[in-house]
């Protein structure tokens, strides 16, 4: 097995201009250039995209799933961050 050192790249594809790149999967490659070449063959065989990002998986910092509650629950009780929280008489238009 002489491929052990090939790093993992996460692949992101922009489906068309105007849309964000979206994660589609991952692949191993000797370097970023090869990752782009292979991503083209693996993830865009049917016109799925117009642009590819290959990001070394080791460069991604990710939040810990066990912190999910402490990170994201605080937003749940802040209804005043949403427009529907505010009462506006029906007669007032364009707001």
């Amino acid at each position: 097995m002489d491929r052990k050192d090939w790093p993992l790249f996460e692949i992101f594809i922009r489906p068309k201009n105007g849309l964000s790149h979206k994660h589609v999967g991952s692949l191993h490659a000797a370097d970023a250039r090869m990752a782009l070449d292979n991503a083209r063959d693996v993830y865009t065989r049917r016109g799925e995209g117009v642009s590819i990002w290959a990001v070394p998986a080791s460069s991604i910092a990710a939040s810990d799933p066990t912190d999910k509650a402490s990170l994201f629950d605080p937003a749940d009780d802040k209804v005043y961050r949403h427009p529907t929280f505010y009462d506006i008489p029906a007669d007032v238009k364009n707001i």
């Binding site: 002489d2 050192d5 370097d31």
Partner: peptide, 16 residues
């Protein structure tokens, strides 16, 4: 395919 993998690894090292 061994030589292809070896060549790709060597080429990547050279580019780096």
């Amino acid at each position: 395919g061994a030589w292809v993998r070896e060549a790709a690894t060597a080429h990547a090292a050279k580019r780096k």
